[in-house]
């Protein structure tokens, strides 16, 4: 996995208007480790040095959304400030918060997933938990996190059929990633297990615990 050396360079982003009140700063059109790290680093830079007129910053898998008030700041001003922060963009210096998340690997798709990768269930679980993953992005649904990226030997497409509802805590696997559903939702991902780790408490002012860039060590429990 790419280190965060001082000489790290990030892909050049494109700046795209998303409607009339947001810009997207997009570091790639496919999910790569570099583009994801750049998005997280840039969101972190914006948190350290906010841009006047920008109301909300959301990092995504390969981009950062900046929601702004068009009556308070012009696009030129905002994009100028954005380019300033991009030119000095360094890898995220925050020490990532490390989490250990216990998973019961009892999902309905576990054996099929392992078989599709040419492994036994036990070997798949061992390979899945072999090294820590990074939280690549949040935001798809309340408390939902994408984690990755797995090595190529663990890359599997989504299922053909969508399950109309999987329960909160479901641990999902597809496209080189592991995701945790914090609320009940439909999904086309393989359900490989479940966790008691709760990443959505709506009564709190900050309702989720995991942040993009955090590291997660999954741990098999019974």
């Amino acid at each position: 996995m790419a280190g965060s050396s001082a000489s790290e360079t990030f892909p050049m982003p494109t700046l795209i208007p998303l409607g009339d009140s947001s810009f997207l700063v997009r570091f790639g059109t496919t999910l790569t480790d570099d583009a994801n790290r750049a998005a997280i680093a840039f969101a972190s830079a914006l948190a350290r040095a906010p841009v006047p007129g920008v109301l909300e910053v959301m990092p995504n898998l390969v981009s950062v959304l900046l929601r702004y008030d068009p009556c308070a700041a012009t696009p030129d001003t905002i994009l100028g400030e954005v380019r300033l922060r991009l030119s000095g963009l360094a890898s995220d210096k925050r020490k990532p918060h490390g989490w250990t998340i216990p998973v019961v690997f009892d999902g309905p798709d576990l054996e099929e997933t392992a078989a599709a990768l040419g492994m036994t269930g036990g070997a798949f679980i061992a390979a899945h938990n072999a090294s820590p993953l990074r939280v690549l992005a949040t935001g798809f649904a309340p408390g939902f996190v994408y984690c990755g990226l797995h090595p190529q030997v663990l890359v599997l497409p989504r299922r053909m059929a969508v399950r109309p509802a999987v329960p909160a805590g479901s641990v999902l696997f597809a496209a080189g990633q592991t995701a945790i559903a914090a609320t009940e939702m439909p999904t086309g991902w393989h359900v490989i297990g479940h966790t008691d780790f709760n990443n959505f408490e709506p009564t709190k002012q900050r309702p989720t615990r995991l942040t993009a860039g955090d590291t997660i060590q999954f741990e098999a429990v019974r």
């Binding site: 409607g19 059109t29 995504n60 898998l61 929601r67 935001g139």
Partner: peptide
Amino acid sequence: LVSDAIVPGD
């Protein structure tokens, strides 16, 4: 496509 941010009106 890679999942990306949505805004109202998209």
